[in-house]
C-alpha cells in the first residue's frame, strides 16, 4: 500500500523535472554572450563558414522551439548532447565528476549532523545555560561565515601552518587506487587499500567541514528550537512519571518527535550543499560537478550547463521526495 503511494508520488515528480528542464533551457539562451563567439575567441582567426559549421553542429541556427524539441528528444533517449567546449558527451562528464561531488556532499552532511544534532539537543535541554549560549553564539558565527573564507582559513591553519591535512584534490599523486565506483572511499574499501582509504579521508576532511559548517549551524538551531517545543509537551511529563530519567526521556521520547523540522531543513539544505560546492570545489581543487558547471557557464557551454542543472534539479526533487517519505516513517499521523 505504502509502496504504491511512494511510486505514485515518484511519478508525480516527472512534470516538475520537465518544467525545470524548460526553464533551464530558456534561461540559458537568455543570458548574453554567444557560445560560438566564445569558442572562436579562443581560436583566433575564423571564417564565416567555420562559424556556420559550428552553429549547425550544435543546432544553434535552428529556431528556439526546434532546439527545445531536439533537447527533449535527446533527454528521452538519455542523451544530453555533447559539451561544446570539450566535445565529450555531457552524460559522460557528469558520470565522471558525480562521485567526487557526492562524496564531498556526503562528508559535509555527516559532519553537519554529527556536530549539529548533539549541540541542538544539549542546548535545548540545558536552555539558557552557558553551554547553550556558547553553542548558539558559535552557530551564529557558523551561519554568517562565507564558505570560501572558511575554506582558506582552514587551509592556512591545517595545511600550511600545521601541515596536518592536504588542501587540494581527492588523493595524493603517489597513491594508486583502482577505480571501480568512482567513490574513492568505497573503492579503497572494496580493494582493501588501507593507505588509499586514509589518504582519501584526509583529503575529504577540510572540504567537508567547509561545506558543512553553515549547514551544521542551521541544523543545530532548528534542532534546538524544535526540541524546546517538544520538551514542553505533556507526553514528556508522562514519560518522567513512568520513571524514566531526564536524559532517557530526551533520547527515547523527544528526539524522534523533534526530528520532523530538522529533516525538512536537511532536505532543503541538500540544494545548498550542491550550490555551495561550486565554491568549495574551487577552493580545494576538488574535481566535481561544481567546478565543471562553473567552467561551463563561463564558456556558455549550453548542453553542459543544461545537463548539470537538470541533474541538480533532479537531485533536489528527489531529496525532498525522500524527506516526504521519511516523514511518514517518523510520524504515523502523516500519510503520503
Amino acid at each position: 500500500m505504502k509502496g504504491i503511494k511512494i511510486l505514485e508520488r515518484l511519478i508525480a515528480t516527472i512534470p516538475v523535472v520537465l518544467g525545470i528542464a524548460i526553464i533551464v533551457f530558456l534561461f540559458m539562451r537568455l543570458t548574453p554572450g554567444d557560445p560560438v563567439d566564445i569558442m572562436m575567441g579562443k581560436a583566433g582567426m575564423v571564417t564565416e563558414a567555420e562559424i556556420e559549421a559550428l552553429q549547425r553542429e550544435f543546432n544553434l541556427n535552428e529556431p528556439l522551439h526546434v532546439q527545445l524539441f531536439l533537447f527533449f528528444k535527446g533527454l528521452l533517449a538519455g542523451d544530453l548532447g555533447n559539451s561544446m567546449a570539450r566535445g565529450v558527451p555531457v552524460t559522460k562528464l557528469i558520470k565522471d565528476t558525480l562521485p567526487a561531488t557526492i562524496e564531498l556532499a556526503g562528508g559535509a552532511l555527516i559532519f553537519a549532523l554529527i556536530i549539529a544534532l548533539p549541540i541542538g539537543i544539549i542546548s535545548a535541554v540545558k536552555q539558557n545555560s552557558y553551554i547553550d549560549k556558547a553553542a548558539m553564539a558559535v552557530s551564529f558565527v557558523g551561519i554568517s561565515m562565507p564558505a570560501f573564507w572558511l575554506g582558506i582559513v582552514l587551509i592556512i591553519l591545517f595545511s600550511v601552518n600545521l601541515n596536518l591535512l592536504p588542501s587540494q584534490s581527492r588523493l595524493s599523486h603517489m597513491i594508486n587506487l583502482q577505480h571501480i565506483t568512482g567513490f574513492y572511499i568505497i573503492d579503497s574499501i572494496l580493494t582493501g587499500n588501507m593507505p588509499a582509504l586514509i589518504n582519501a579521508l584526509k583529503h575529504l576532511f577540510l572540504p567537508s567541514i567547509t561545506l558543512g559548517a553553515s549547514m551544521a549551524a542551521i541544523i543545530a538551531r532548528v534542532m534546538r528550537s524544535s526540541m524546546l517545543e517538544v520538551l514542553k509537551q505533556d507526553y514528556v511529563m508522562l514519560a518522567r512519571a513512568k520513571g524514566l530519567s531526564k536524559w532517557m526521556v530526551v533520547i527515547k521520547h523527544c528526539i524522534k518527535n523533534a526530528m520532523m523540522p530538522t529533516i525538512t531543513v536537511v532536505g532543503m539544505q541538500v540544494g545548498v550543499l550542491l550550490g555551495g560546492n561550486m565554491i568549495v570545489e574551487s577552493v580545494f581543487g576538488w574535481p566535481g560537478l561544481g567546478r565543471l558547471v562553473v567552467d561551463a557557464i563561463f564558456n556558455r557551454d549550453y548542453p553542459l550547463v543544461q545537463g548539470v542543472v537538470m541533474f541538480y534539479a533532479i537531485i533536489f526533487v528527489l531529496a525532498n521526495f525522500t524527506v516526504d517519505v521519511i516523514y511518514t516513517y517518523i510520524n504515523p499521523k502523516i500519510e503520503l
Binding site: 505533556d234 507526553y235 511529563m237 508522562l238 512519571a241 521520547h253 524522534k256 518527535n257 510520524n331 504515523p332
Partner: peptide, 19 residues
C-alpha cells in the same frame, strides 16, 4: 515513579506520545 506512585494526566490527546 510509575512503580509505586503512578499518575493519570488531564488531557489524553497530548499526553500519549504521537510517534
Amino acid at each position: 515513579r510509575g512503580k509505586e506512585i503512578a499518575m493519570i494526566f488531564q488531557d489524553p490527546m497530548t499526553t500519549l506520545n504521537p510517534v
